[in-house]
Design a protein around this nucleic acid. Structure first.
Lengths: 254, 254
DNA sequence: GCAAAAGTGTTTGCCTTACACCCATGA
DNA sequence: TCATGGGTGTAAGGCAAACACTTTTGC
């Protein structure tokens, strides 16, 4: 007969790899705004790994689901609201945390805004949005985060890095999943505000997928997935661009 | 300062949704063998849910990863060896297990053979391979397992069923992931033996994806992903079929 | 020869790509 | 007017569906 006391139990954490699109003002009134992919990291204020970057996350509490853990910790540590969560995997290597037996359920989390709450009641020293870029060549992969952190991977495995715990590995796995979901399931729309111009999509889309095509062909490829709103963005010094919304699933085949 | 005693800890289980392809002998010496998708379920020998079907699975032990838990339990309960494991998600609803606070990391698991070990040192009454079929129409989905169990879903949520725990929900999520991985990442090969004829692929492939095409066009679509072995299957009463292997990733673009 | 499947070639239509072109707007 | 992006049209190439056809084998 099973009794719940018969097994040792690990501490369970949720960690989130949060991506967002940052919009920088254009260089001139003519050119497009610069839209770049960012990742949210926490500068750790406590041991272990004090002062190093880590993913936002925290411990599962009794009475909540692991998704609620992720949402709560994101709000507390960074002010990120209503993220889109996608479960990644459970990281459970026995030596992954020097504090003891702690496993972590990792999530890919997307937000439509990169603003940070300033008065976050935080148990971490501070949350920062950092530039994110990914490159691969053969069996080697490189991720650059912010201006100072470079992560290397060989055959899909993280090499020792400046990041806390096994978070370098989690970040890679999350980005590859993001790329896959953008490619096959239009996840790009979960990184965008509700209404947007076609050209707002292209930079984020192509920096995630690592592709490039002309604005004309990008338009034709993406238009079947969009619905016109009739509104226009008139802020730029050229022809105003129509704002679109994501087309509802049921209407795709019409 | 963090202390590991500061948080309550849940019991952590791993559950696996195991799919395999069963090969039934052909009706005559002329026709093809019947290949059907099967799912491995356990008839529970203990409370709760005694006598009902559940997924194979068990509890995480100290010193092992959650993947090792899944592999160990599969071997113990069903004799399945060397499954391909794909992490699905963590199921953590607070009332999902009447025994208490138990969360489960669910895996999609694929095996190349549907044979069962007969002398499994089992803590379950018995493992069975059951026919699996999936249908969807609008927001309703139906999964049929074996001859007796039918599962219903509305808007992606499992309706009450004869399965133990929340396993009806897990099975649906697993099958949709299977379909997605077969479509986008050629996961079908993890359900096949190392060497196989082109026609061996088509039935499983199309029953998972819910599509149908001619044998000729299926061949042309799949051949770029295959390598000839030079061996032939001469058992049937018609032209012998060449056996192929999965082409290595690096050779795909040649 | 006949049934059944293995395997090849051809046609057609669609979808992507490259690129020429016009439109709208503010400086 | 000019620079810049918004937006449309068209022609070429590649891919997939439909299907006609040949090959191989056991009965």
């Amino acid at each position: 007969m099973y009794t719940i006391e018969a097994f040792d139990r690990p501490s369970v954490a949720a960690d989130a790899v949060v991506f967002g699109i940052d919009t920088a003002p254009p260089e001139s009134k003519y050119s497009l705004a610069q839209r770049t992919l960012k990742i949210l990291l926490i500068r750790r204020g406590e041991e272990p790994f004090k002062g190093q970057y880590s993913l936002p996350g925290g411990f599962l509490r009794k009475g909540e689901t692991i998704e609620q853990t992720a949402v709560r910790e994101l709000r507390e540590e960074s002010g990120v609201q209503e993220p889109k969560l996608i479960p990644l995997k459970v990281y459970s290597a026995v030596d992954r945390d020097p504090r003891g037996w702690i496993i972590s359920a990792a999530f890919l989390a997307l937000t439509r805004t990169v603003l940070l709450s300033t008065d976050a009641q935080s148990d971490a020293a501070g949350a920062e949005w950092l530039n994110f870029s990914y490159e691969s060549e053969g069996s080697s992969e490189t991720i650059t985060v912010g201006d100072t952190v470079t992560l290397h991977y060989e055959n899909g495995t993280a090499q020792p890095s400046d990041l806390a715990f096994d978070h370098a590995q989690i970040i890679r796995d999350a980005f590859l999943r993001l790329r896959d979901e953008v490619l096959h399931h239009d996840l790009i729309f979960d990184l965008m505000p509700e209404k947007f111009a076609v050209s707002d999509l292209q930079q984020p889309y192509e920096s995630i997928l690592g592709t490039h095509t002309s604005p004309q062909n990008f338009r034709k490829k993406i238009l079947p997935k969009l619905t016109e709103t009739g509104e226009y963005d008139k802020t730029a010094a050229h022809r105003a661009s129509m704002l679109y919304m994501r087309k509802r699933e049921e209407d795709q085949n019409r």
